[in-house]
Each structure stands twice: as C-alpha cells, then as structure tokens.
Design a protein around this nucleic acid. Structure first.
Lengths: 234, 234
DNA sequence: AAGTGGTCTAGACCACTGC
DNA sequence: CAGTGGTCTAGACCACTTT
C-alpha cells in the first residue's frame, strides 16, 4: 500500500467531496491546516491541492483560499454513443464476439494511464462488434475492478460495456484522442481486415469522482466508420 | 519583467527545442544538470520539466532521463483553430504553398454540398501548410464568391483562409466529418507522402446566415496529426 | 495584521535504469 | 556502480485578500 503522500492528501480531500461533507463552493482546508492535521510538509499539501485544481475539482484564489469547484457541464461532438444502438438504428443485425474477459494485474502502461499501482486488479475486455457479420469496432478495455466486478459475467449481446458503465458509474469527464493509422497484425486479424488498410483509432479515458474509471481503445476499419459533429454559436 | 524562475527554466528548454538544437528523441539536461547550469534548486528544475511533460513537449523515463517528445499537432474538434498558430505555438516555422486560387463555376458535387446552382461562382483554394518544411495539412476549399472576393489576392503567409473567413463572415454553425483513409494520388503528391500511408480527413461545412459559406477538406498525414477532446457532465 | 496561496531553497531518501 | 527521476521535508520570502 505504498502510495505517495500527496496521493493520501488528495484522497483525504476527495473523500470529503465524495461523501458530500464539502460541497461545491465550500472552502477546503488551507495548506497550513493540512500541514497541521495530516503532518505533511507544506510542499506536499501544495502539490495535492494544485493537482486537484488541475483536475478541475478545486479552484484556488490567491489570498482567499481553496474551494470545491462547481460541477461543469459541457457537451462535445465526441459523444459516448452505443455502438449497438448505432448498428441496430440503421437496420443492421448486431453481433459481438468476446475475445477476452479476464481479471488481470495492471500492465505498466495501463497502470500509468489509469494512475493505479502496477499489478492492481483490473478487468480486461476485448470484443469485436459486428454489423450484419462485418466487423465494425474492436474494443479493448481496462476497468477498475472494484467499480463493476460483475462485468466479468455479463452477456455483451444484451448490453455493451460502454452502456453498462455509463449507467453504473457516475461519469465526470472523458478524454478522447483520435488518430488514423495502419492496424497492428493482431488487431487486423481480429477485425478480419488487411493490415495495409487504414483504421481510425479512438482512445477514451473516463474519470469518475477524481479517479480514472476505465481506459479503452476502439479500432475501426476506416471504410466502416466516420465521426461527425456539429456546433453552433451565437 | 518578473516571471517565476521555473518559467525561465521552461523557456530555456523551449528555446533549445524551438531552434532545433534539441530534436525529438534527444535527451534534455537532467534535473541536476539544470541545477548546476542555471543555478536553481532541484525542485525548481523538477517543476519546469514536469510541466513541460504535462504540456506534451517532453517525455520522462524513470532512471533513464528526459527526452524531447515526438511532435504531433493536437486540436480540438470543437474549435476552429488556426493551423498557423498551432505550428508557431510549438516553435516550428510556418510555411504555406499555394497550389490554386481561382474563381470557378461550381462543380456538381460541390454545388450539391453547398446548395448552390451548378456553375455558380465559387472561389477555389488549394494550399499546403508546412511546419519546418514538413507538410502538415492540405486544405482544399470552396467559398461562396460573393462573401469574400478579396480571398483571391490575399497573401496566405500572413493569414490563413480559415482565420480570414472567421473574422470576415459571421459564423453560425460548422459541421464536421472525420475519417481515416489512404490518400488519393494527387493528395499524396501534394503532401509529399506515400499513398500507402494513412491520412486523417476532416470535412467542414460552415454556414452563415442560413447559407453555406464554405466547404473545406483538410487532409493530414496520420503520423503528423491527432485530434483530442474532453468533455465533462454534471 | 493575519491568513492565504505562489514560489524557492538546500538538503534528503528512494526506485529504477544503465553499465 | 553512478546517474536518473520521484518524492519529501522544514524552513523562507513574497503578493494578495480580508479583517
């Protein structure tokens, strides 16, 4: 259980925000108060509060104090949609092939991405979604095991991991990175496509209550997929 | 001119990245080397390097060192950004090659897209945007000629078509479609890339006062570009 | 004046990497 | 082994805000 001290301080603050004892707008303890009550140095308290501020959970005002941030509401063209609904909505038959559902210790790169210890228990899912038998999307996902252990025994013909998690875990934010590339051999094989044909890759990291809940990589054959979005102003 | 010391350290590193003396993959000075050469404390050097890492300009590896990150443009699909600003912001030299600026009668496909008569007068622009001589974006655009006839005689080294139109024409909405593909021979040639390497293609249609003002296709070499975005909900 | 966050120092111990 | 980044401490001075 060797987490950095500043993580302990962050969790101390987060716990009070999560359980509602500190509400948006409330002042949280000052750096010096944390120094006294938690017996840490001021630099450590400062780091904890600064990082929580960068993560959008706190707001700091010079000379006044540190406050719980108001919850943001923003929409975005990169919606989290259900692949199954997309497929059935256009009249195709939805199908899914489950390649892996397993409980695994966190690999180093995933651990870094999710900010968990290497070896922490994660649920790993790897599925391919089909429309009328044509592969549409490869989904490779890691989920914090404590959030939804029953993922291991779900029937993904009924509900997709995305949808299940959306309902089960209160979503705070999602970060996306979209890029084009050629698929690696393994992904191409699972998608039954040539590795010389391009794919669109979407990485999504979702956070809930200050923690990374899930990281997922979606791989789409380029000829089967496009993203669209609109925005208006004024 | 009292900027924090860690900003001075950041600028010291940034200057070397911008002027090309430290290239992507190169090791930058270690914290202790910065302590010696700049006469700052290690915490200050650490803060500078940590922030540059968070900003995506450096990559740190425990026990090995700190390295200049591979460069990719990152943009948010929601925003209409200036490619020129993106390039200069990361310290590269911006360049543009104008392939075509002409007044043309609307081709059938463009006429349908813009909801104008076939043969209506449109301005057609085709340019390639470069960062340090490397092609970043091919821009192929049609603009309703009556909106901005002076586009034909602008110097695109000073202002990009996107930026010019943003200021000149009141934007109402923009629709985007993003997809991955292999480039056609002509686009690959203009981007000086192989037609077997994937590209990311963004189509944007902007409307102003109920009419389509402009349709544009951006083609990016996949290894030079990625989209990113975040959203949060309450 | 007192309290706050913003910055900075000069040490320290640790875990990881490479040789 | 030496060098690296990751963390932590116990001080310090400053600018800003409120009382």
């Amino acid at each position: 259980m060797n987490q950095p001290l500043y993580e302990t301080v962050k969790n101390y603050v987060l716990d009070h925000i999560r359980d509602g004892s500190w509400m948006p707008g409330d002042r949280v303890p000052s750096e010096n108060e944390l120094v006294s009550s938690l017996s840490v140095s001021r630099m450590t308290a400062n780091r904890a509060l600064k990082e929580l501020t960068q993560e959008g959970l706190l707001v700091r005002e010079h000379g006044r104090g540190t406050f719980v941030a108001a919850r943001r509401i923003r929409s975005h063209p990169l919606e989290i949609r259900s692949i199954k609904e997309d497929i059935t909505a256009r009249g195709d038959t939805y199908g899914v092939r489950v390649i892996a559902t397993e409980l695994v210790p966190a690999p180093v790169d995933v651990a870094a991405e999710m900010a968990v210890d290497v070896g922490a228990q994660l649920i790993h899912l790897r599925l391919v979604h089909f429309a009328d038998g044509v592969a549409q999307q490869l989904e490779d996902r890691y989920v914090r095991a404590s959030l939804a252990p029953e993922l291991l025994s779900l029937d993904f013909n009924d509900v997709s991991p995305s949808n299940y998690l959306l309902n089960k875990v209160p979503l705070h934010s999602a970060e996306h990175i979209v890029r084009a590339a050629l698929p690696c051999e393994r992904d191409a094989k699972d998608l039954a496509m040539r590795s010389t044909d391009p794919v669109m890759i979407i990485n999504r990291k979702t956070t809930s209550e200050g923690q990374v809940a899930s990281v997922v990589t979606f791989v789409h054959p380029a000829d089967q997929f496009e993203l669209s979005g609109t925005f208006a102003k004024g």
